[in-house]
Amino acid sequence: AFDAKAFAAQFPNPAVCERQARRYLPVSRENAWSALKACVESTPFTQLQALIDRAWAQELRTRPEGAALLAKVVAQRGGSVEGDLRLLHERKLPIFSLASAVSQPDTYKGRYVLVRAQVGDMRSEGEKSTLWLVEQDLTSVSQEVQLGTAYRRESTFTTTGDVGGQTSLGSGTVGGSLAQTELSRDAVTIPAYDNISHETGREALGRLASQDPFLEPGRDFIILARFDGMRTT
């Protein structure tokens, strides 16, 4: 039997792992898919472009875990759902945004949606639980950050001298000195970007078959779900 975990362990580099997994495709699609999944699970895999390449299109569309694999990679690369869904749509991969589902409920009913959200509230009824989901968006905020060492230079110059010449009282000499201090500071700054998540204003109810204590309130999650339609509150 093909040992996908052992396969992925040979290639700690995600890009190399995916390329090697791809080589199994002509031989066994089953082994190639197991190898690809192992690459995503056991390497810091963020290569969404390689994953949605034509080579894997059939696998991603037909296998039940295809959408989950894509969702996991979107999360691993930071969870920028809006931008990554745009990449998936260029390849006609059917995972949609909450915004699309809300705007055309009939069109998207039963379809996959991918949402970045925080859990606001949790209600349980027997085994089942319902989560209040608050959709989050990422925006990039930049600020200047000092790079490396800052140099501070302090120089003191003292000038002394005498000045001679004619004055109204006759000839004379005036002596004096001038002290000058110069301070300078050199620092190099670069813009640094931080991704701040904030509420989009969209909310949803998320149904879970069983209670899950790991879905904690106040943290962002990348959630893959089926859109069941709209419900009047």
Partner: peptide
């Protein structure tokens, strides 16, 4: 009244912090 989308959660993941 107002309506809210209902989702059946399939799976979820913790987003990795983005490094730019």
């Amino acid at each position: 009244g107002p309506s809210i989308p209902v989702l059946s959660i399939v799976s979820y993941y913790t987003p990795h912090p983005l490094v730019v």
